[in-house]
Design a binder for these strands. Structure first.
Length: 269
DNA sequence: AATCAAAGCAACCGCCATTAG
DNA sequence: ACTAATGGCGGTTGCTTTGAT
């Protein structure tokens, strides 16, 4: 019987979002939340499918998104988490406040993968060249061309009042929580992170340094220990489920730091 | 100044898991 | 218990920007 398509393609707009669309979406979610993505575009008067709206919100319009270049510490975090979790970008993103799975995925594929294993990426490119000659994109392994950061905002970039790396625990919990389906909570909390609340969670270099150092202190060694562990090695033999493994590592993160404040401020999963 | 290849990133696609009826 | 609807995720595509020539 096959499931219905995500949205009827007829008449629905695709491609880059315009500032007007962004404004409409933000205003609608601000007022009504996003309890039902499928119904949202119709209610908001957007000619988009719900999936597109959701993606735009999650990856770009959410007020707690942290934009701009990834710091070295963040990149190291991604590398280590990737060692542990593999391509589970959403799980990795859950541990990087303000970063989206899409963004992390992009960073991984454009920077980190090559950096970690240039020879492998070169091999892959070779394979790809043989496999799909039509592909127009070629990337020399040694290439290290850096694009100018974020000054080049996309056409559809909204004006972002929240460019700081501040985020509230509550909003992060909502956005990354597994239980989902809390439109009301989202409605109430999503936009508070941008406001001037006193208990905002300030993320800076020291936070990342402390966070990263936590499991390493526990393991009694340096970053390489964790980073070099195979997932099956890192995960305890007793824990069979992936979630249990993730919980384990989160616990290590939490317990590893002597600073309670930092531990408490870690994003909820 | 013009052209072209590569990098970067937003957005789409298709599948799977979960939930509601 | 079954089916359809919905949400969410990872993989991939393709457009825009950038830097080299």
């Amino acid at each position: 019987m096959g499931r219905a398509p995500c949205c009827e393609k007829m008449g629905l707009k695709r491609g880059p979002w315009t500032p007007e669309e962004d404004k409409t979406l933000v205003a609608h979610i601000k007022s009504f939340g996003h309890g039902n993505w499928r119904a949202l575009p119709k209610q908001a008067g957007l000619l988009r499918c719900g999936k597109s709206c959701r993606l735009r919100w999650i990856n770009y319009l959410r007020p707690d998104i942290k934009r701009g270049n990834f710091s070295d510490v963040e990149e190291q975090t991604i590398i280590q988490l990737h060692e542990l979790l593999g391509n589970r970008w959403s799980a990795i993103a859950a541990r990087l406040p303000g970063r989206t799975d899409n963004e992390i995925k992009n960073v991984w594929h454009t920077h980190l993968k090559k950096r970690l294993d240039p020879s492998a990426s070169a091999r892959q490119e070779h394979d790809e060249e043989e496999g799909q000659q039509a592909n127009k994109k070629r990337k020399p392994a040694a290439a290290s061309r850096k694009r100018k950061p974020a000054a080049t905002a996309p056409v559809s970039s909204p004006e972002r009042s929240v460019s700081t790396s501040t985020v509230t625990e509550s909003s992060m919990a909502v956005e990354h929580g597994n239980s989902g389906s809390s439109a009301v909570s989202v409605k109430e909390e999503s936009f508070t992170s941008a406001s001037e609340e006193s208990d905002e969670f300030q993320i800076d270099e020291s936070f990342w340094s402390e966070t990263l150092s936590m499991p390493l202190l526990v393991s009694g060694s340096n970053n390489d220990v964790v980073a070099s562990m195979e997932p099956h090695e890192a995960f305890g033999a007793g824990s069979s489920s992936v979630d249990g493994d993730m919980d384990y590592w989160l616990r290590v993160f939490m317990e590893g730091g002597g600073d309670d404040d930092v531990a408490l401020d870690l994003p909820q999963i």
